[in-house]
Nucleic acid binder design. Structure first.
Length: 804
RNA sequence: GGGCAGGUGGCGGAACUGGCAGACGCGCAGGACUCAAAAUCCUGUGGGAGCAAUCCCGUGGAGGUUCGAUUCCUCUCUUGCCCACCA
């Protein structure tokens, strides 16, 4: 009988469907250990699943099936991240309305997921666009609002001219929109912000205890960018104005030879004098015309002198004040002290404008940014940088010139989007009462259906045009008021979806206390690393807010995180349509079947590594499955009684069971598969010898099952079993079969292998040594030489160290 | 410029805690089956020397520690990813 994977797939899909996916459903009380295995949910794009989805989802499916067989109660849900720019941009491109388009895509992708045999508990499916879901997104927003974590501010924000909306800092990558790649602009817009910065320290500290990849933790640390330092106030010569600067290098204070203000700094024009006023004004105007990107990428050093001086707090020397683009307005105080001897940027600036350079840190050939011992620093000379920071800080603070300060790179989360496809922000603007939150009983504020939802580009949401939706009575004074028309960013819904899975139908709360207690934190979270400072940071923040309000029982949402490696095209380049190197999973399943695709993606290399697709490599997995299939047919035909025990067979099989059982939780799927391949070779031979009984073979099917559920289940069925393998338990490793009767010792001479030496288990070192020295092969190398030393590594190696 | 992760056959990769480098797979070569091809199955396959037993070389490069290094240390070259005038 042929290995007709297509027929097998259809057969079991139908059976699983008929059984309403019951084996994968979580029961309320089970007495079992709870394990929550979570995928990053996809946005339903219309082009369906790609190889990257399948890689991550296969891994979690293997884990889920494995833990179920180990007797755990496994929660493994799936849903749809359907709001936001990706879905809306795609809909715009297709000239369709997302409201009708998204459900179609969901159906398409759901079908694909089911075809891939992923064992999701479909009874818990959610979509962020479902009003029953986003009512809670809005509710959570209101909790933040009531806690004072939400504020409206007009500030210079990143704006994507193509997506026609404001963006958060996290959504701008290298000066470009994370979604469409257009260069972003800076615009003054009034936007809702969420005070994520208030949680900066906790977001930082919480990382230490998480079982996450170090690289992701490091990315978040860098993104939060905590800097501890001092704010120093400099007085102008005429004592009329003050300028504050932030520095982490107070030890270089005596090396200050100039001050620099960002062009946006209010003090710039205030202190500019005489002819310098016009030069300064002109410079500032020009700078403000340039985009952030232009400023950043500019190689030339620019700046102007304001004509004013400040006074050094210790030396009382006059320090010129300049204005330059290289100083960022929105970090620190928007002004810096220039220490050209010990800061590269200051050095460049000083060189360009011939400002003096004073070295104050001794030692080191390259003076830039090095800590060391102070010189030319009056009474602080001779102190180390660390000591000096402390001492200078103390003195300046006691005279009120400096204060300790901590700055973060992290900015508050710009939360307004001037787009249609998102959760409406549940606030009302009342001319009498100001901003009024929508009462919780009135939630959800549903997104109205519209004909045209194109973004306007005016800084107004498309919702602003829908009069009947905007006009509303003020919940406080009952007078005419209007709805907030901006929508939430795409990240809002994904900040808490893992909570809704726990209790997806609950109408009273977003999830019951019992369910939260039972399942949090998420045991294992698998997804791409590209969300390091977006979703993964926002979700942690959101969770912390809920934790503080006692809505969730744990301070962190995801105990363990794993990033799947990116799958490159066959040409070792990132898959992209323009390169034409995209591998379509549908083509693979058509030719080789679902199980082959699943296993091949797991076999390509370590799960977390970036790895290229090799079209030809698939054959190896396909051959393996065909071999297993043909062994299964023979096993059935021969029907060897279980009483026949073959020692070598059982040894090999149990070693494999052990290996696969260790590799799965360690996510070493590639080596697990290679172990099964070796085992199948042995099974083939033993089957031909008439030593392989159905029951023994079934143990092999059980360990194959998480990887290749269709093939394993079908063979299980063919061997007369009527149950689903889902309810089988993982085969127990019989230690008896793992025990060795003899051990192989490697005999080396001067570290080079000269002999494999098989000896009884209980043979002592001295005896092995004596016997080994008798061996002719070893004798050759010892002949006429003096044994200086004999190294014995327990059960492994004997090494004779000899000399002529 | 900064951070992180890598560099092992023709290719993807394996190697526990410092202990047989190259498991497993692809590809390739030879063979079986076939009128033939594909598919499948069997055998071989790091490089070099040799009929052979066997020997020498070999984990980006140069040093070092060690009886022994892909693994640890120093320097160096290089690739990928992320961040980037963050004071």
């Amino acid at each position: 009988m042929k290995y007709d994977f297509e027929k097998i797939e259809k057969k079991w899909q139908k059976i699983w469907e008929e059984k309403k996916y019951a084996p994968w459903k979580v029961k309320k009380t089970s007495g079992k250990k709870n394990t929550y295995i979570l995928d990053m949910f996809p946005y339903p794009s219309g082009s369906g699943l790609h190889t990257g989805h399948i890689e991550g989802y296969t891994a979690t499916d293997i884990l889920s099936r494995y833990y179920r067989m180990q007797g755990h109660q496994v929660l493994h849900p799936m849903g749809w991240d359907a709001f936001g720019l990706p879905a809306e941009n795609y809909a715009l491109k297709m000239k369709k309305n997302p409201m009708s388009f998204v459900p179609t895509n969901i159906e398409l992708m759901k079908k694909q997921l089911k075809k891939m045999g992923f064992s999701y508990d479909w009874s818990r499916e959610i979509s962020t666009t479902d009003p029953a879901y986003y009512t809670w997104t809005q509710w959570m927003f209101l909790q933040m609002y009531k806690k004072g974590l939400v504020y409206e501010a007009e500030s210079p924000i990143n704006f994507c001219p193509s997506c026609k909306t404001g963006l958060a800092n996290e959504e701008v990558v290298g000066g470009r929109c994370d979604r469409c790649g257009s260069e972003t602009e800076t615009r003054m817009l009034s936007q809702w912000h969420i005070k994520i910065t208030q949680y900066a320290d906790r977001l930082l500290e919480g990382l230490d205890g998480l079982g996450w990849p170090e690289s992701i933790k490091e990315l978040q640390r860098n993104w939060i960018g905590k800097s501890e330092g001092y704010e120093i106030t400099f007085k102008t010569e005429d004592k009329e104005n003050t300028i504050s600067v932030f520095t982490t290098r107070l030890d270089t204070l005596f090396g200050v030879t100039f001050l620099v203000l960002a062009p946006e700094h209010q003090m710039a024009l205030k202190i500019a004098k005489g002819d310098y006023y016009f030069i300064t004004e002109n410079y500032i105007e020009n700078a403000q015309k340039r985009t952030a990107k232009e400023r950043r990428s500019s190689d030339e050093v620019s700046g102007v002198f304001t004509g004013s001086y400040v006074v050094h707090p210790f030396t009382k020397i006059r320090i010129p004040v300049w204005v330059s683009e290289y100083v960022l307005f929105d970090y620190g105080t928007g002004a810096v002290m220039g220490v050209p001897a010990h800061d590269k940027r200051d050095h460049r600036f000083a060189t360009r404008f011939h400002l003096s350079i004073e070295e104050v840190i001794a030692g080191k050939d390259v003076p830039h940014e090095n800590y060391g011992v102070l010189k030319n620093s009056e009474e602080f000379t001779g102190l180390t940088s660390q000591e000096a920071i402390e001492k200078i800080g103390e003195q300046l603070m006691s005279s009120g010139i400096a204060t300790k300060h901590i700055y973060y790179k992290l900015r508050d989360w710009v939360f307004s989007r001037q787009r249609y496809w998102g959760e409406p922000i549940p606030l009302i603007r009342c001319p009498h009462c100001g901003i009024v939150p929508v009462p919780e009983k009135d939630l959800p504020v549903t997104l109205p259906p519209v004909k045209s939802y194109e973004p306007s580009g005016t800084g107004q949401s498309p919702l602003a045009k829908i009069k009947e939706w905007i006009e509303v009575k003020c919940p406080v004074c009952d007078k005419k008021a209007t709805r907030e028309t901006n929508t939430m960013p795409q990240w809002a819904g994904s900040c808490w979806y893992y909570l809704r899975y726990l209790d997806p139908k609950n109408k009273k709360v977003f999830a019951s206390k019992e369910s939260l207690k039972a399942w949090l934190p998420v045991t294992m979270y698998v997804g791409g690393a590209e969300h390091a400072v977006l979703h993964l940071l926002y979700a942690r923040f959101w969770h912390m807010v809920l934790y503080d309000a006692k809505h969730v029982p744990t301070p962190e949402p995801f105990a363990r995180l794993v990033n799947q490696g990116i799958i490159l095209g066959p040409d070792h380049e990132k898959m992209s349509k323009s390169r034409g190197n995209v591998v379509n999973p549908d083509d693979i399943t058509k030719e080789f079947g679902v199980d082959t695709l699943r296993m091949y993606e797991m076999f390509m290399g370590p799960f977390e590594d970036t790895k290229p697709w090799a079209q030809e490599g698939i054959r190896g997995i396909f051959r393996f499955l065909i071999r297993v299939w043909s062994i299964g047919l023979d096993v059935k035909k021969k029907n060897v009684p279980s009483s026949i025990k073959d020692d070598a067979l059982l040894k090999g099989l149990h070693a494999t069971i052990q290996k696969v059982g260790q590799d799965i939780p360690a996510l070493k799927f590639n080596t697990a598969i290679s172990a099964m391949m070796e085992c199948s070779d042995m099974l083939r031979k033993k089957c031909d010898e008439g030593a392989l009984s159905p029951n023994t073979f079934i143990d092999f099917l059980k360990i194959l099952f998480p990887f290749a559920p269709y093939t394993a289940q079908e063979l299980f069925h063919m061997l007369g079993k009527t149950t689903l393998l889902d309810s089988a338990s993982w085969p127990t490793v019989n230690k008896k079969y793992l025990a060795q009767e003899s051990k192989t010792i490697i005999i080396q001479v001067n570290g080079k292998k000269r002999l494999d030496f098989s000896v009884p288990l209980d043979m002592t070192f001295e005896n092995i040594k004596t016997e080994a020295m008798k061996s002719p092969k070893v004798k050759i190398y010892l002949k006429g030489k003096k044994i200086l030393k004999t190294i014995f590594a327990q059960d492994r190696i004997i090494n004779f160290v000899v000399k002529e």
